[in-house]
Amino acid sequence: MLRRVLGLGAGRVALGVLLTVVLLAIFGPLVAPQDPLATSTDLLAAPSAHHWLGTDYLGRDVLSRLLAGSRLSVLGAVEVVAMALVVGAVPGVLSVYLGRAFEWVTLRLVDTLIALPFLVFAVAVTALLGNGIPQAMFVVGLLVSPLFYRVARAATLAVARSPYVEAAVIAGASVAWIVRKHVWGKVLPPIAVALAQTTGVGFVVVASLTFLGIGVRPPAPTWGGVLAADLGFLSYQPYAPLAPIVLIMATVWACNLLADALRDASGVAGRALVLRRPRFSGGSRVKEA
């Protein structure tokens, strides 16, 4: 699958951008030209040889701050995705096999989670349960897990009804064997697409929260924080927000591009599968009966 994604131009570009961001997260703080926390008298300086992206209102080097902030963004996005995957995809597959009670309960929970505005909840929970991006991302991961639940469930339902799986059931195959042998292969491609999309959401949420100053202590460098710092001085430095904006958008765009490439490479049926008319907003009840 990776080879086929790399065969697509879009897939190469997307993976390239994301790999760069991940490398920045790992090594960025080491290669940062200056201390991201060190202030100087060079306030709101324009880009120069010394400060490639200029300085902020405390004279801190913007490039160094962005590099140092990338680690938090990547970790946050990974946490959202991992959380959503465990809480969403696994019950999604199991909901088809573990009986009606489990199915009913998980469907109700999914309906509930989707009704909660996740940014508002993330803000509330970070403040109440401890001020940190990990806490916030835990909640966001929980609240985006319905996507994974639905995708996994839809794919599993489709496989479970196919003739060869019915034949396997008649032949006496166990549920565990069927899931391992037939279901995983069919569930993984749409899950991969959802994974790439959710990673993009994760980056946006981390940037939004740090932009609001939630989940971080002030001098700590973050992408959103750099953006917020620039915002107060737009009339002095109108172009200052461009660097963090380009960085955030390129990352999100690469995630979406990767999602599209994965979809093309794996032949997942368009968006129809990912955004199949959800149960929450109308009756797919009959469809599933």
Binding site: I114, A115, L116, P117, F118, L119, V120, V123, S208, F211, L212, L231, L275, R277, P278, F280, S281, G282
Partner: peptide, 25 residues
């Protein structure tokens, strides 16, 4: 139009959530 309407229903929480950020700006 069905799927589009359904998506609209799911967008509303995002609009409320997004308000947190835009109101700050």
């Amino acid at each position: 139009i069905g799927p589009a309407l359904a998506v609209l229903g799911l967008k509303f929480p995002n609009l409320l959530g997004g308000a947190v950020v835009t109101e700050a700006i």
